[in-house]
Design a protein around this nucleic acid. Structure first.
Lengths: 216, 216, 216, 216
DNA sequence: AATGAATGAGGATTCATTCAT
DNA sequence: TATGAATGAATCCTCATTCAT
C-alpha cells in the first residue's frame, strides 16, 4: 500500500520532520537547512521537488500517512469501540513527536500559505476529500458498530464523527500540555474519553430518534 | 474593562485582521501591506511596535480579547448550561470572520515562530496561563452548574472542560467546512452538541463516582 | 574674539561632543540622540541648523576654536620656544577628552563625507586656509624666534612648521596609547620633544644655508 | 608570504579601494556600489564576508599589507638610515593613491565605528599589537643603526620611533596638500626630513645621556 | 545524477526631515 | 518659537532558485 520512496526523497522528508521536531519554525525553514540536514546537495533537492513548499508539504503528508497507517493497523486488531478508541489514544501517547507533526499538518489545512496549498493539492490528488483527514477512519469504525442496527440520520452520523474526532483531537492537545504529564492522570482521562465516546455512540445507535425536535 | 487603543495602533490591528480575513497568509504579510492597508506610513508603525511580529501577534490578541468579551457577555445573560453553550455556538456562527482569527490564534500558540513567541509573551504578561485560552471560561460555567452538588474529582473536571472545549472547537472547524453550510443542518448539529454536553455534565455531576475504577 | 553662541546652539555642540567623548561613532550619531542629549526638541534643532551634518561639523569646529584659544593664551604667557612647546604639550595632556575631538576634526579634514565638506566650508568662510589648522600658530611662534636674525628660506620655514607640527601631533597620538600612561615616561618624552624642536629650530635659524644642496 | 586571495574576495577589495580613491565617502559606501563595481552579485559578497563592515575593513587592511610589503622591500635594499627614510618618502610619493588608503586606515584605528572594530580585530588576530601599525618597522631600522653602540634608554627609543613616525606621517599629509605639489619643493623638503631624522638619531645614539635631566 | 557557487528580487528596518499644532 | 508625530526613501541582508561543472 505504501509506495516506495526514493532514498533522497525520503531523506528530505526525514530532515524536514527532524528539524520540525527539534523546534524549527516551518515558515523559517530554509532549503539550505533542509538539504544540509538531509546530507544532500541543495541542487539535488530540486531534482526531486519543484520547490521548498513541495518538500515541506510532502514531508508532513508522508508523516501523516505513516502515522495513520499505524493507527489503522492497531484499530483493526481490536473488536470493541472502547478498545479501538483506547488504542488510538495510547498510540498517540506513544508517538508524541509524530503527533506534533500531525497537528501541524491539520493546522496547515486551514492556513493559506503556499505549503498549505500544496497539502490541499496532495489531498485532492489522492481523493482524500473527506470532512477532515482521518475522519473517514472514524466513520468506518462507527459503521462497524452498527452491527445490524438501524442506520442513524446523516446529521447524527456527522455529529458522531465530529464528536469523536474532537475528543481525540483534544486528547492530543492535552498530551502537549505540561500540566498533564502525570501518567495516572492521563490514564484516568483516557478512560473517561473512551467511556464518553461509547456512551454517546451507544445512546445514538440505540435510540435513532435522539437529537430530533431538540430545539422545538 | 477593555483598555483604550491608540488610533494608529488600532488601525494596524484592523489592517492585519482584514488582510487575514481576505485570505492573506500571515507568514507572507509584509509591513508595507499592513501599513498601506492601515493608511499610515511604514515608519509610523515602528513608533508603536517593535517589529512586524509584534504587530501581527497583538492584532490577533486584540481580536481574541474582543471575541471572548462578546462571548462572555452573551453567556452571562443565559441561565441554563444548554443555553450558554448554544449561545456560544450561535455567536461563533454569527462571527465567522472573527472565528478564523481566533482559530489562527490558537494555532499560533502551538507554533514556534516569532509571532507565536510574542503571543505567548502576551498571555504570560496578562497572566492568562490557563490550560488553554478561554478554557477558564468553561471551567467557570461548569462551577456555576454545581449548584450545591458535590464537587467532582479534579480529573473529572479536567475531562469535562476538555470535552466541552473540544466540542466547541470542532463545531468551529465544522463551520468552515463547505459541506456544512446548510443552515438547517447546522441548527441540528448545534442542538446535538448542546445536548451532548448537557448529558455528559449532568451524568458526571449527578454520579460523582462515575469515571472511577474504569480501567480496573 | 569668541562670538556669543545661542543657548540651544551651544547645547547641540555640547551634546555632540559629549556623545563623541562617550565613545559614539560620529557616522552613526542620530539627530534624535543629539537633540535628546541636548534636551531640546528634534524640530528645534532645525531652526538653528540646516541638517545633521552642520550640527556635527560646527560642534567639532566649536571645540577646535575653544581648544586653540586656550593653547594660544598659554603660549602668549611664555617667552622661550621651549616653554611654549612645553606649554602646548602639557595643555594637551590636561585636556585629553578635547584632544580626541581635535584629532577627529583633523581626520575629518581629509575625509570625504558631508560632515567633512561642512568643516572645509567653515574653514574657508573664516579664511583659515592655512596649510593645516593651527599651523599658522606655529608659524607665528617661529617668527617670534627670529628675533632680528635672517629669515630662512621658504622651504625651510615650511619644513620647520611641519616638523614641529608633526611632533606635537604625534605626542598627542602617544597620549592615547595605553603603553604611555606612565606620568614619568610622559614627562621624559615631553622634554625630549621640546628639546628636539629647539635644537632643530636653533640650527636652522643660526645657519640659514642648512638644507641647501642636501641632495647634491 | 602574502597569502593567496580568492578572486571574488580580491575583487571586493579592489572595488572598495577604487571607490575610495575616486572620492567616495567610506561611511556612505553601499554594498550595491561595492559589488556593482566588483562585477559580482550582491549576494555573492555575503558568501565571503559577514557584512559590509568586514568588506571595507579587510579591503583597507589588504591595501595596508601590500603597501607595507613594498616599503619593506625597498628599505631592505638600502644600507644607510638616510637612504632608508628617503626610500620610504619616495615610495609614498610614487603611490599617492595607496597612501590615501593607508592614511584612512590609520584614521580608522582611532575611530569607533564598526569598520574600525573590524580593523582592530584583524590587527589583534595577526598579533600586530605594536605601538602603531608599521612602527615596528621603524624600531627595527633604528636597531640596525646601533651597530655595536650602546643601546639608548627605552624612553629614548620610544621617543625616536615616535619622532620618525611623526615626520613620515606628516610628510604624507603634506603630499596631499595642494600647496606642495611642486616637485622641487618636495625634493627639498624630503631631504630636510631625512637630514632631520639622521641628525636626531645620530645625536641620540652618540650621546646616550642626552634626554636625561632635561627638566631638572 | 549531483553539486554548490552565484545570483538578485524582495522585505524589514532606520532615521533625517517636515509640518501641523 | 518649540515640538515630536508622521513619513518614506534608502539600504542591508536573506534565501529560493539556477546552471555550469
Amino acid at each position: 500500500m505504501n509506495r516506495e520512496y526514493l532514498p533522497k526523497e525520503k531523506a528530505i522528508y526525514q530532515a524536514v520532520l527532524a528539524l520540525f521536531e527539534e523546534g524549527a519554525d516551518i515558515n523559517s525553514l530554509t532549503v539550505a537547512e533542509i538539504t544540509g540536514r538531509a546530507g544532500i546537495g541543495k541542487g539535488t533537492a530540486y531534482e526531486y521537488f519543484s520547490g521548498k513548499e513541495e518538500m515541506i508539504a510532502k514531508a508532513f503528508f508522508y508523516n501523516g500517512e505513516m502515522f495513520c497507517g499505524q493507527l489503522y493497523e492497531g484499530i483493526c486488531k481490536k473488536s470493541t469501540l472502547y478498545d479501538k478508541i483506547y488504542c488510538v489514544l495510547l498510540e498517540m501517547e506513544r508517538q508524541i513527536p509524530s503527533m506534533d507533526c500531525v497537528f501541524r499538518l491539520l493546522h496547515m489545512l486551514s492556513e493559506n500559505s503556499s505549503v498549505s496549498r500544496w497539502i490541499r493539492k496532495l489531498l485532492r490528488e489522492r481523493e482524500m476529500t473527506e470532512e477532515a483527514p482521518a475522519a473517514g477512519m472514524i466513520r468506518r469504525v462507527l459503521l462497524d458498530e452498527l452491527d445490524g442496527r438501524e442506520m442513524p440520520s446523516e446529521e447524527m452520523m456527522t455529529y458522531l464523527v465530529f464528536s469523536i474526532y474532537s475528543r481525540i483531537f483534544c486528547y492530543g492537545m492535552m498530551l502537549k500540555d505540561e500540566k498533564y504529564q502525570n501518567a495516572e492522570q492521563r490514564e484516568s482521562i483516557r478512560s473517561l474519553v473512551c467511556q464518553g465516546v461509547c456512551r454517546e455512540v451507544e445512546d445514538a445507535l440505540t435510540d435513532p430518534k435522539l437529537g430530533q425536535n431538540l430545539t422545538g
